[in-house]
């Protein structure tokens, strides 16, 4: 492959089709990476452009050449035909969101992350009107041991972004997934199981990547009023990853 192929907007640039639009891509990009580089939005939760794709939430599911695949992990191929914003796919995404809502305990009105939460914003984007399924109402105690940060596990969607940030960026491994199946849960790297007993600090990348409201800075409660938050101002499809503000 010639060097030129890697320059964007080159006539010889490899492209694929996303919902009828021609999108350029470079070798090795996954569908969502290429789409986002072109300003196209594909709903997603466990994907964050700064990290290696994980492929677990499946919200980013698309059909690629007729086969369903997670667009955050599916490699792009030249002339691939990808469908994303279609009714059947959005119906499925909505059902997956509903699953995430009933699996945890999400009381949006009382959540500090409300308006900045990608789960909530994606639910708005996809017109999710109700949780549809019966709530699991799991018992997930808070961890308020840390001086500056609170962990509200009720809202964890197990996307592992905090774990990836902590190990890949901070070099710390503060967070890990534990358990199996519906009992999968997040743990911290301390025998006590408490965040205060880890080397976590507010300067960690891991403190700022949670797409929902688990890792919450203490004592800044509602500094930005509801109504003025990222996804109040723009829908998530316009700014999928707003500038991180300390919530």
């Amino acid at each position: 492959m010639s060097q030129n192929n890697k320059t964007p907007h080159n006539k010889n640039q490899a492209t694929f089709i996303l919902d009828g639009k021609t999108i350029p891509f470079t070798e090795g990009q996954t569908i969502i990476q290429a789409a986002m580089a072109s300003g196209e939005y594909i709903p997603h939760l466990c994907f964050n452009p700064e990290f290696k794709p994980h492929g677990s939430c499946k919200i980013c599911t698309v059909t690629a050449n007729g086969r369903q695949a997670a667009s955050c992990t599916q490699q792009t191929q030249a002339d691939m035909v990808v469908e994303s914003n279609t009714k059947p796919i959005n119906d499925e995404r909505r059902a997956l969101l509903q699953m995430l809502f009933v699996e945890g305990n999400h009381f949006c009105p009382s959540c500090e992350k409300s308006g900045d939460c990608q789960l909530q914003a994606t639910a708005y984007e996809l017109n999710m009107m109700s949780p549809h399924f019966d709530h699991f109402s799991p018992d997930r105690p808070l961890d308020s041991s840390h001086a500056e940060y609170l962990l509200d596990y009720n809202r964890c969607i197990l996307c592992s972004l905090c774990a990836r940030a902590s190990s890949d960026v901070d070099g710390k491994n503060v967070f890990s997934l534990a358990g199996r199946g519906i009992k999968t849960h997040l743990i911290v790297n301390a025998k006590s199981g408490k965040l205060a007993d880890t080397d976590f600090t507010g300067d960690d990348k891991a403190a700022h990547v949670c797409p929902v409201g688990v890792i919450i800075k203490k004592r800044v409660g509602f500094a930005v009023p509801i109504g003025k938050r990222s996804f109040d101002e723009h829908p998530i499809s316009a700014t999928p990853h707003p500038k991180v503000r300390d919530v």
């Binding site: 919200i59 699953m99 995430l100 699996e103 399924f133 199946g181 519906i182 999968t184």
Partner: peptide
């Protein structure tokens, strides 16, 4: 279910 992906983790319980 290993619990990795949403559909199977939650769906098998549902």
């Amino acid at each position: 279910s290993c619990g990795f992906c949403t559909p199977c983790r939650v769906g098998t319980s549902l």
